[in-house]
Write a protein that binds this DNA or RNA. Structure first.
Lengths: 179, 179
DNA sequence: ATATACATGTAACAAGTTACATGATTTA
DNA sequence: TAAATCATGTAACTTGTTACATGTATAT
């Protein structure tokens, strides 16, 4: 059974074949895709997926100077992924450093506390506008049919939009309360 | 420099002295407090905090059969925590298995996909009503002054409430789109 | 000349989870 | 008498991050 990272890789490969390098690029910043990983984690995981015959790798001459291995998902990989995505998801564990800091904000200097929350709001605003740009592009690119991968890109993106908006509203409320 | 868990423990001890056992209880389910940890992580971390003189432990006879060590935050610990909470927080890394599953939902059986999202909605509804009960209690318990620890309990709780409400709205939207 | 992109891997470390270990007291 | 609560610790394992290692081609 693959790890969560394994399923993340299968999810990308189910859409189109990619090399390890391209997967690492895709997982560098998790846009519309709430998972990230570094290449040092990806290469060993790809080897495991191949050992389990969930993906097949074929060496091809890349655009770069070194040979690259392009991975394709197998029928078994597709079945494993399809089975995993409909399994009831664990309750989110809700780990947030930002909230952990807020929890102890009562003992900080009030001005510094306000500044901290204000900085938080800025970060969320930045993320929001990044998401909004992508959403506008996707909506412009044509109709979103809920049986296509593109629709599910959009669905996860909408969750990101919603998350950032509520985070900003919360910062506003907190700043108001802090005076 | 303490780890994030270290600051979580300092945050609890800044409110009142506690034993390792009580800290483990508090960090079992992260309500109003977006961090969790198991006792096997907590005891070694407490030892590190004590070695750094950020907390002091005193052995006292507990209600149980075994002696227990009650930890108190030191002035240095309080300073370290106060400095940490106002430092700009890292951008949330947004790791979500639930969204990762959604990303690949296009290749699942449509009925099973709807059921998965519906189950997700149920989990979020359950969390929401748990949070709502706690919020009602807190509001009932008296005025929330934004210089007290209690206010910041309430502030983090509000973030949880907002998070769950948006998650439910998103599930509703997705179920509507999936037909 | 220097930096960036391409391309894949290993090693060392940090953080977190699960299982192992012990054992008294209280509650059902 | 069986389970839960109290109480603290270690060991093994999994996951994830950062650093180390190598080396060409292209763009600035």
């Amino acid at each position: 059974m693959p790890s969560t990272l394994g399923y993340a890789l299968l999810g990308l490969l189910a859409r189109e074949p990619r090399t390890g390098y391209e997967l690492a690029q895709a997982l560098r910043i998790p846009v519309g895709y709430f998972w990230s990983a570094s290449h040092s984690q990806i290469y060993p995981e790809l080897a495991r997926l191949e050992a389990d015959s969930l993906v097949h790798g074929r060496v091809v001459p890349g655009p770069g100077p070194r040979d690259t291995k392009r991975y394709t998902i197998s029928a078994a990989g597709r079945r494993a992924l399809a089975a995993w995505v409909v399994m009831p998801a664990e309750l989110e564990e809700a780990r947030s450093e930002e909230l952990l800091k807020t929890y102890s904000l009562w003992l900080a200097d009030p001005a510094a506390a306000r500044e901290m929350v204000s900085g938080l709001r800025d970060s969320h605003r930045e993320m929001l506008s990044r998401y909004e740009r992508i959403a506008a592009e996707m909506e412009h690119d044509g109709p979103l049919d809920p049986v296509t991968p593109r629709f599910f890109d959009y669905a996860t993106l909408r969750r990101g939009l919603s998350f950032e908006r509520h985070a900003i509203a919360w910062c506003d409320w907190l700043l108001g309360a802090l005076g």
